[in-house]
């Protein structure tokens, strides 16, 4: 059986100050993804290697990693695409590392919370009155932004987030836009208070890598640029037509 080498980032905070790389030889099955190889390492070679994973079908968002420098879902990256190796596997960039391939994501979770990712309404419609109507076209206005699986590859790919950690970041802004563009939602003004600040859309310099690495084609870069236009229009409107609000 042909083999391929994985150079895996190791960091054991109870034993060492700085990370090291450890090399493992794994069988190169043609239908194995990086995650299969890591599970092989954990089961057969080294029980101490730590990483997050669950669904292995690209939808739970747990297993994002840097593979040869690119942010990918390790359940969707095939070993054969990295022939002949070695394959360098590291934790997601721009996040503090807890251990091995496990990053700390409290910051991301807090940011998700800040953009109010829920339907904001002045008056809730009683359940007895049935559903809100929403045409397929209205659905498509926001649906692409609703596809985000919170895998954080976009944060790992975003140099702005790396340099300015207070930046709310691609996924959270895309999620805010998901609700802003939903015809059932009335939270646009409330979200603007967060998105239009220095930590919001104006931090973005449009590197565009967030959209490139997104495994679900969410296009957060597009969401942010659209929001910049919307936010600017709203500002001019408030200055030129102060009575319109």
């Amino acid at each position: 059986m042909e083999k391929i080498a994985l150079e895996v980032f190791r960091y054991r905070p109870e034993e060492e100050q700085t990370p090291t790389f450890q090399t493992y030889e794994v069988p190169l099955h043609k239908d194995w993804v990086i995650l299969d190889a890591l599970n092989y390492v954990k089961d057969e070679l080294d029980g101490t290697l730590s990483f997050r994973h669950s669904c292995r079908m690209g939808v739970c968002g747990s297993c994002g990693m840097m593979v040869n420098g690119d942010a990918v879902l390790s359940c969707a990256a095939f070993l054969t695409d990295y022939r002949p190796g070695p394959i360098r596997v590291e934790p997601l960039a721009n996040f503090p590392v807890l251990r091995d391939l496990v990053i700390e994501m409290n910051d991301f979770m807090a940011k998700l919370n800040r953009v109010m990712p829920w339907v904001v309404r002045e008056q809730e419609k009683p359940v007895e009155e049935g559903e809100y109507l929403q045409t397929p076209e209205e659905l498509m206005d926001y649906k692409p932004y609703a596809m985000c699986i919170n895998c954080m590859l976009c944060y790992a790919a975003c140099p702005v987030y790396g340099l300015e950690p207070e930046f709310i970041g691609p996924a959270a802004i895309a999620l805010a836009q998901r609700y802003n563009l939903d015809n059932r939602d009335e939270g646009n003004a409330a979200r603007m208070e967060i998105l239009s600040t220095d930590e919001g859309v104006w931090q973005c310099t449009l590197v565009g890598e967030c959209s490139t690495v997104c495994p679900k084609a969410v296009d957060p870069a597009g969401a942010i640029q659209r929001y910049k236009v919307a936010s600017t229009t709203a500002w001019w409107k408030s200055k030129l037509l102060p009575w319109s609000r």
């Binding site: 905070p13 109870e14 960039a93 590392v97 807890l98 700390e104 807090a110 919370n113 140099p159 790396g162």
Partner: peptide, 25 residues
Amino acid sequence: SHYPRYRQFYPKLYRKRMPIFWWVH
């Protein structure tokens, strides 16, 4: 609210800083 309120023992995190020439790779 997703703010970590309950952690009593913070782990020792490894943080890597972005190098000045982060963009050449």
